[in-house]
Design a protein around this nucleic acid. Sequence first.
DNA 1: ACGCCCTCCTGTTGGC
DNA 2: TGCCAACAGGAGGGCG
Length: 277
Amino acid sequence: MGNYSAMPELPEVETTRRGLAPHVSGRRIAALTVYEPRLRWRVPDDLPAKLAGQRITGTGRRAKYLLIGLESGTLLVHLGMSGNLRVLPAGTPRIAHDHYDLLLDSGKILRFNDPRRFGSLHYATGDPGRHPLLAELAPEPFDAQFDPDYLWRIARGRRASIKQVLMNSRLVVGVGNIYASEALFRARVRPGRGARSLTREEAGRLVKAVRAVLSMAIRVGGTTLRDYVGTDGEPGYFRQKLYVYERAGKACRVCGTVVRRVTQQGRSTYYCPTCQR
DNA sequence: ACGCCCTCCTGTTGGC
DNA sequence: TGCCAACAGGAGGGCG
């Protein structure tokens, strides 16, 4: 399997945000240096000039976008599926796939590394929520709006599977491939079920499960696959808590049944045929 | 409106 | 042992 890296989902992004916030909040950007602008979208040539000298007002997160608030706008940082941000002393030698540095007035740099270059860097002026990448996003899983009624209602109107619904960022954001499988396991719902077959009770269990699995992952610092590290170099420990993800052929941790792997829309899905109905 | 597929990218893996 | 195709996946874009 090629997941040598973090596959940053919502918990990994939130872990990154919390790790770097104390290092960047209130600092001034001395310079942005772009070594490789060809990310998911090309980093604009004029971005360094726009950022230089600006104070960082704070950090935030929307879906899997890390937001860095500046005096005159907001940086939208996406980690893609192999990206990470590290806080390092200025002058630290670059390694392969280091693509840009934000030099801070503290003498530290915020360095972005991303082997697959699926990550991105955007700058929004004005309300970042109006930026095209954020404007159409669904509620956060921890929003009050994402409740059993909401999930049940949208699921009933869909022909797609329940796993597809969970992973559709126009319906609910932040649930990627790992946590979709894990949440469905905890809710005891089979991932291949048609979303419209979800009962009201199952919708309730699923809302709880999504929130539980995400908040637990945030609490322990994300999922370690191969070499995931947060901004301070500490690995995440959620991998140890996985019930089904990447456990095909192994015994279910609850009932002992062999965990299955199936493919849905080209993505791996894992489930226990006994625990999940 | 919805659902599905394609695309971007590169390190790792497995088959021959 | 070495080569190479397949695979992994977030998510926007496009198409039917």
